[in-house]
Design a protein around this nucleic acid. Structure first.
Lengths: 147, 147
DNA sequence: AATAATTAGATTGATATCAACCTATCTGAC
DNA sequence: GTCAGATAGGTTGATATCAATCTAATTATT
């Protein structure tokens, strides 16, 4: 009885072609692998690069605000900070005026590593933009609309 | 010495605005959360849905071919199959003519669950396409070019 | 037929991701 | 000042992700 109404193969093909979620996951995985490979000499992943870049601002942000910027769960960010803290690249401090909050900042070593990563990002990003059929800015707009 | 050449804040802003990798990760995470929430009553994630859909074809595919379709590592697929096998939704069998390979197939229960998931996908996908500023097909083309 | 090279997956270890649930802290209403 | 509600994070458990490394099986070379 459980396969009286199976999904027709034509439906599978239609969904596989159309599913923006799958297309996004695929493209995100490929891009992540590319950047991960490029950053590997520095011992960074693409996510760690984006996280550290989000901390490179005049006023040290909190966990919640960085999680919102990266569109990740707060608990994911808590976990992601651990290896960076262990390596002395990032500091996490309770804020005195609101002891619930944490102030996130790059250490000098973190700033130095980030500076070394920027040229790698430039090269990879140029390569990726060249692969696009059309306008990179329009793609970014669509991705922003989805996020 | 390690922060003699820090990354200027302007560079941070430029990279954060431009980085396609970050934009992709963000959009992929948001889309994943939406579909995960929609599929939750069925106990499926977006990735499990895409995986099962990839198995819904006349000729049972192998691990390597499905990994290529989904653009995931073979070892990731090996791990992803485990919970679906445990739940009796997917079967994994050694192929007699090439005992290195595995034949992946949906079970009757898997086909039934997939059929129940399709209307949920339809609704979510309509909602996502409505959020796009422009043409969904052009976005898919760009994502295909990147993957 | 023996052996080298290739191919298909599995295992291990590390990080990533989130839901569900928890604690600590702050703010507002009274 | 107390207490309820809201807010900021942390912890746990499950799955996701990949690199590095391994085994088993097949194919190609000789």
């Amino acid at each position: 009885m459980s396969n009286l109404n199976p999904v027709p193969f034509a439906t599978t093909l239609r969904i596989r072609d159309a599913c923006l979620c799958l297309h996004l996951q695929r493209a995100a995985r490929v891009a992540a692998r590319r950047f991960d490979a490029a950053f590997r000499p520095l011992g960074l992943t693409n996510g760690q690069f984006s996280l550290m870049m989000a901390l490179n601002r005049p006023d040290a942000p909190t966990i919640g605000s960085v999680a919102a910027i990266l569109a990740i769960d707060r608990t994911t960010l808590t976990a992601a900070l651990k290896p960076l803290e262990r390596r002395g690249l990032v500091s996490v401090e309770v804020i005195a005026t609101d002891r619930r909050s944490r102030r996130l900042a790059l250490t000098p070593a973190g700033r130095a590593l980030l500076a070394a990563a920027v040229p790698i990002w430039e090269a990879q990003h140029d390569a990726i933009e060249r692969r696009l059929a059309g306008d990179a800015e329009r793609l970014r707009e669509e991705l922003r609309a989805l996020a």
